Simulated assay, not measured.
Amino acid sequence: MSELPVSTPESESHSIVIKHAAVMTGDIAQSQSLSNTAFSAVVATLKKQLQNNANLYNGSYDIYRGDAFQLVTSQPNNAMNIAVGLRLALKAHSPSTDVRISVALGEAVFRTEEVRTGSGTAFVMSGRGLDSIKPQHIAFQSDNLILNQQTQLLTRFLDVHLTGLTQIQSETLLAYLLSEDKSHDSVADRLGKSRSNVSRILNASQYKLVVEYLSYMEEAITTAINNGKGCDSGKLTDSKDE
């Protein structure tokens, strides 16, 4: 795993500065309705997923206020893979629950030991996005106007689709997304189900459309960052051009 790019001026010797980062700010939906035992189990699942994604996508995370979290990654092209995976993991959990996640792309300045105190455009947009996310459960924005226009409506459709998935559909779709071997036989073995049952559940969950959305987002974000020259042209801000 590559190391996060670090900027170490004397005034910020412990801060990490990422020019193009993804920040995910979220919370557990309707957490107050859960029993103490159920809430603890949900938080444990959330923490496991955050840790796995931090390891996989070179990131850092924080859980605070009991049911809130933030994750920052230096691989913004994978931001929606992370967000969708987190939602599916909580919806697949027993008891099934959901999370609200606001994803934002931009500059991030933070300390790995206290991500929730981070600053920069990605943190600001992500936090504000969560404040206004209802009735949605997942939202995406960036400091690139063109990228926003290309992706926000698609993300709203994805959000509606994910909200309607059952616990079993969420579990099966997540297993498919995480599986290196995408064959239905492999996913069936992983879940201890029959191949025909897995195929039926995946088709009902419209898994191909979800995969196409994630691939589209990954490519769109990568293209936007590679072409970024500044906000005046509708591209990602690059401070050296300001």
Results as ranks from 00 to 15, higher is better:
residue 18 I to N: 07
residue 35 S to P: 05
residue 49 Q to E: 15
residue 7 S to P: 09
residue 55 N to A: 10
residue 13 S to C: 08
residue 57 Y to N: 02
residue 36 N to G: 13
residue 59 G to F: 00
residue 16 I to M: 03
residue 55 N to W: 15
residue 27 D to K: 07
residue 7 S to Y: 09
residue 59 G to E: 05
residue 53 N to G: 00
residue 35 S to F: 01
residue 33 S to L: 11
residue 22 A to C: 13
residue 40 S to D: 02
residue 17 V to P: 13
residue 34 L to N: 06
residue 55 N to D: 14
residue 38 A to I: 01
residue 52 N to Y: 11
residue 66 G to M: 07
residue 40 S to P: 06
residue 19 K to N: 06
residue 10 E to C: 03
residue 11 S to G: 14
residue 50 L to P: 00
residue 48 K to N: 09
residue 34 L to Y: 09
residue 8 T to W: 15
residue 10 E to Y: 15
residue 60 S to V: 00
residue 50 L to T: 02
residue 11 S to Y: 08
residue 41 A to C: 02
residue 6 V to G: 14
residue 14 H to F: 14
residue 54 A to T: 06
residue 22 A to G: 08
residue 63 I to S: 09
residue 30 Q to P: 02
residue 58 N to R: 12
residue 6 V to Q: 14
residue 35 S to E: 11
residue 40 S to L: 04
residue 13 S to V: 13
residue 52 N to L: 06
residue 52 N to I: 01
residue 44 A to S: 07
residue 33 S to R: 12
residue 22 A to D: 03
residue 27 D to H: 04
residue 61 Y to R: 05
residue 65 R to I: 07
residue 52 N to W: 08
residue 44 A to N: 10
residue 36 N to E: 12
residue 62 D to L: 11
residue 67 D to C: 03
residue 18 I to C: 13
residue 60 S to K: 10
residue 24 M to A: 09
residue 66 G to P: 10
residue 62 D to K: 01
residue 33 S to E: 13
residue 11 S to W: 07
residue 37 T to G: 15
residue 10 E to D: 11
residue 64 Y to A: 01
residue 35 S to K: 10
residue 62 D to T: 02
residue 42 V to F: 05
residue 15 S to V: 06
residue 63 I to T: 06
residue 63 I to P: 12
residue 58 N to W: 01
residue 60 S to M: 00
residue 58 N to D: 12
residue 55 N to K: 15
residue 42 V to A: 09
residue 46 L to Y: 02
residue 15 S to Y: 10
residue 9 P to V: 02
residue 40 S to V: 00
residue 20 H to S: 11
residue 64 Y to P: 11
residue 19 K to H: 07
residue 30 Q to E: 09
residue 31 S to T: 02
residue 51 Q to C: 02
residue 33 S to A: 14
residue 26 G to C: 02
residue 14 H to V: 09
residue 8 T to A: 13
residue 52 N to K: 06
residue 44 A to Q: 13
residue 48 K to A: 08
residue 47 K to H: 11
residue 41 A to M: 02
residue 40 S to N: 01
residue 45 T to G: 12
residue 35 S to I: 03
residue 8 T to C: 10
residue 10 E to V: 10
residue 24 M to C: 12
residue 19 K to L: 04
residue 45 T to C: 10
residue 19 K to Y: 02
residue 19 K to S: 10
residue 12 E to S: 03
residue 50 L to I: 00
residue 65 R to P: 14
residue 31 S to I: 05
residue 65 R to S: 07
residue 21 A to T: 04
residue 46 L to S: 01
residue 53 N to T: 03
residue 60 S to Y: 01
residue 11 S to K: 10
residue 16 I to G: 00
residue 15 S to E: 13
residue 45 T to W: 06
residue 30 Q to N: 13
